[in-house]
């Protein structure tokens, strides 16, 4: 097939294809038929603008609407359910990844901080006197009276 040089026509075909609510096979067939007609139209109107193309062929939305109108209802509902299911799975996967990543970062934060202190816990001394404090790691820290 001859390559389409008119940018407006290429953009139009791309927009129609993006909006078509049908299977890949049907999209290919429809855009192929449209491309053929567009080529013939452009041979007579080589500098056709986007507006002129849409006036003749219809807006991408109207083409998509007619496609939807001619699709059997069960098939249309099935496509809607499939899309909803895919969206639900994607959202669930993103949430799971975020939670896992958040948990991992929290784990890193708590353990890296402990390692940086040589395995000791931080204690806040409020009263200076002889104190024997037992830390979480089990070592005894004696703070002399000053």
């Amino acid at each position: 097939m001859e390559k389409m040089t008119n940018q407006a026509a290429r953009r139009y075909l791309r927009q129609v294809r993006q909006l078509l609510p049908c299977s890949r096979r049907e999209k290919n067939e429809l855009t192929s038929a449209l491309r053929q007609s567009l080529s013939e139209y452009l041979s007579e109107h080589p500098n056709a603008t986007s507006e002129a193309i849409q006036t003749h062929f219809g807006t991408p939305e109207s083409v998509a609407a007619m496609c939807m109108e001619t699709t059997e209802l069960p098939s249309l509902l099935k496509r809607i359910h499939i899309r909803r299911r895919i969206l639900t799975i994607i959202v669930a996967a993103v949430i799971a990844i975020l939670l896992t990543w958040g948990g991992f970062l929290l784990y890193l934060y708590t353990h890296v901080q402990k390692d940086a202190l040589g395995g000791y816990d931080i204690l806040t001394i409020t009263d200076l006197g002889n104190q024997n404090e037992e830390t979480e790691s089990g070592s005894v820290l004696t703070i002399p009276e000053t």
């Binding site: 129609v16 049907e26 067939e29 429809l30 038929a33 449209l34 007609s37 006036t55 003749h56 062929f57 219809g58 109207s62 083409v63 609407a65 007619m66 496609c67 109108e69 001619t70 699709t71």
Partner: peptide, 12 residues
């Protein structure tokens, strides 16, 4: 009818 809207009908 605009030509673009014809093709979904013809396809079906």
């Amino acid at each position: 009818m605009q030509e673009g809207a014809l093709y979904p009908v013809l396809y079906k």
